[in-house]
Design a protein around this nucleic acid. Structure first.
Length: 348
DNA sequence: AAATCGGGGGT
DNA sequence: ACCCCAGATTT
């Protein structure tokens, strides 16, 4: 099957895509630049993230960290703050380390070769291909979920996109249709996948390459792409203690080896002395892609200055306030809890 | 090769 | 409920 494909000429498909892209490209803030720093940041921000969801984060991030040097010299916690609510927080940690890599290993100049870009923390084959093609005329297809979907439909190919061999396989298919202008081709594939060749209810009537799409002509669009493995969520229960007094409350920073890497959280336990001050509890259900969270948060209002000071002295929690909590990154459910408390507290 | 890592939007 | 999104890293 693959052999037959290579005997034919599919380059005209890529050419059509470029022509379509000329008039249908999405107007996005990172489309007006070839600054590798900005392209890199946008590629990281939008990994597994829809444009609409990450757009504000991208703009705010670029405004605060306009170049590699600024980012490299910043504190990790502030980088995490600008990533608040975006998810996959190792991206923020890696993006910060990669900036320092560029300063230390590349004299502050963003590497232009695919193999060098690939060495940056948090940069994989997709991102290296995207940055090198868009900024440096590199010739690698930026194979992502859009490529899987578009190519599997165009060729009516049932190769499993959930396997680890999918990237190599669809890279080869991409080469069959890839024109000289790889940077625009990669972006055209993203826009086509987002606007036309959508996961569900694709708008095949508006598709510039529907004449070349085998799945379309066979009326089998819904059969592609083929994805066999599906991840199912597991349950996770957490207990937190919101220990507060006079608008101040206690937090600690998480490790980087589980969910919510290096984000801040409430204490996971309290002393027997503090149990008396539990006023209420609230259970929050929070759905993540891979976990169903049940979070029980105990409202611990410490009415004794002495007990408050004792507990602080015996633990290394961070004392924060509603105001200063704005400067730290919390997991979404805890962020919501704090904002509710903020609303109630400001009324008093 | 499989598991893990967030949050949000669409159907 | 389920799917998937400009994927990368760890095991």
């Amino acid at each position: 099957m693959k052999k037959n494909k290579k005997t034919s000429d599919f380059l005209h498909i890529g050419t059509k895509l470029l022509k379509w892209y000329d008039t249908h490209a999405r107007d996005l803030p990172f489309r007006n630049t070839k600054d590798p720093y900005k392209i890199w940041i946008c590629e990281i921000v939008f990994q597994q993230t829809r444009i609409a969801q990450g757009l504000n984060h991208y703009n705010n991030f670029i405004k605060r960290f306009p170049d590699v040097k600024t980012l490299a010299e910043s504190q990790e916690d502030e980088v995490l703050l600008y990533w608040k609510g975006l998810g996959y927080y190792s991206r923020a940690i890696n993006i910060h380390k990669a900036a320092q890599q560029i300063i230390n290993d590349y004299n502050g100049v963003f590497p232009s070769e695919y193999d060098e870009i690939l060495k940056l923390k948090g940069v994989g084959k997709y991102t290296a291909a995207a940055v090198s093609s868009i900024c440096f005329n590199g010739k690698m297809p930026a194979v992502d979920g859009n490529f899987y979907r578009v190519l599997s439909r165009v060729f009516a190919d049932d190769f499993d996109v959930s396997g680890s061999r999918a990237f190599t396989y669809f890279s080869e298919l991409a080469h069959l249709i890839m024109p000289e202008n790889v940077g625009d081709f990669n972006q055209a594939m993203m826009d086509l996948g987002s606007e036309i060749c959508k996961p569900r209810n694709p708008i095949c009537g508006d598709c510039p390459i529907n004449d070349d799409c085998l799945a379309f002509s066979l009326h089998k669009i819904s059969e592609f792409p083929v994805k066999t493995k599906k991840v199912k969520a597991t349950d996770l229960e957490l207990k937190y203690y919101f220990v507060h007094r006079n608008g101040q409350f206690l937090i600690q920073q998480r490790k980087d080896d589980f969910i919510w890497k290096k984000l801040f959280e409430f204490p996971l336990e309290i002393s027997g002395e503090l149990v008396t001050f539990i006023r209420s509890s609230k259970t929050v259900n929070h759905k993540l892609t891979h976990k169903n969270l049940s979070i029980e948060i105990f409202n611990v209002e410490v009415d004794s200055e002495e007990v408050w000071k004792n507990f602080i002295a015996e633990n290394d929690y961070i004392i924060t306030s509603v105001e200063s909590s704005h400067e730290k990154s919390f997991p979404k459910p805890l962020e919501n809890y704090i904002r509710n408390y903020e609303t109630a507290y400001s009324i008093l």
